[in-house]
Design a protein around this nucleic acid. Structure first.
Lengths: 115, 115
DNA sequence: CGGAATCCGCGTAGATACTG
DNA sequence: CAGTATCTACGCGGATTCCG
């Protein structure tokens, strides 16, 4: 039961963590609002919460510039970067297979509906 | 926003789907109760629900033998099997990095607690 | 044996308002 | 600009009971 897959799902199965890592990989360093613009449909609260968790886990860094107005920059750590290829692998798989899945799901639902 | 990663997370971010796929890959064909024994801490309901969804999506097959007592066997489809390597990739990463993550998290929490 | 049906608690996450 | 604080609701998933 201490299967590593459990850990992956417990940690990254949430709605936003992986997405934020992807964006930081794509764009490099990002400020809070810039990050928010790349993921418009996340709430401010969830963005903050998820960023703090990612920071706590050592997957991203949070650099605060003591200016006014304040500036905070987020960036992948080495460990965070090392996860990206595996996520990209999954994304590639999804790109190829998601259409099949959706069609299969529709067929299944129609079949059930007619019984 | 139609990022493939979103699809992956929406579909496999749930608590049990990926785990069931792993088990079916490891053990090959499995009956309902056999599968339940390999994942003891899933409820009967969630096992059923998750299996149905995986079947609907074309990731596993569900073969019913009209016997008494009934027998139902679950098995990966080709598409289901094709996902396994990518999950294994993530698992490998987790095995290497999860300890770091947990230690980092502890340190972070202690730091916060002392402020 | 392999489910279906129902009820319900809890946690995640959204909305809103406020702040250094 | 980059958050915090609070309140709330929705739905996932657990427990239980019953069935062919």
């Amino acid at each position: 039961m201490n299967c590593p897959v459990r850990h992956v799902l417990d940690r990254f199965g949430d709605k936003w963590s992986v997405l934020i890592l992807i964006m930081l990989d794509e764009k490099g360093t990002l400020r809070f609002n810039a990050l928010h613009h790349t993921i418009p449909d996340i709430s401010q609260k969830m963005l903050t919460v998820t960023l703090r968790t990612l920071e706590a886990d050592g997957l991203i860094t949070r650099k605060i510039y003591p200016e006014i107005p304040p500036r905070v920059e987020y960036q992948l750590t080495e460990m965070g970067s090392s996860l990206i290829p595996y996520i990209d692998g999954l994304a590639k798989w999804a790109l190829q297979n998601m259409p099949h899945i959706l069609r299969s799901r529709d067929q299944y639902n129609n079949k059930v509906a007619f019984n």
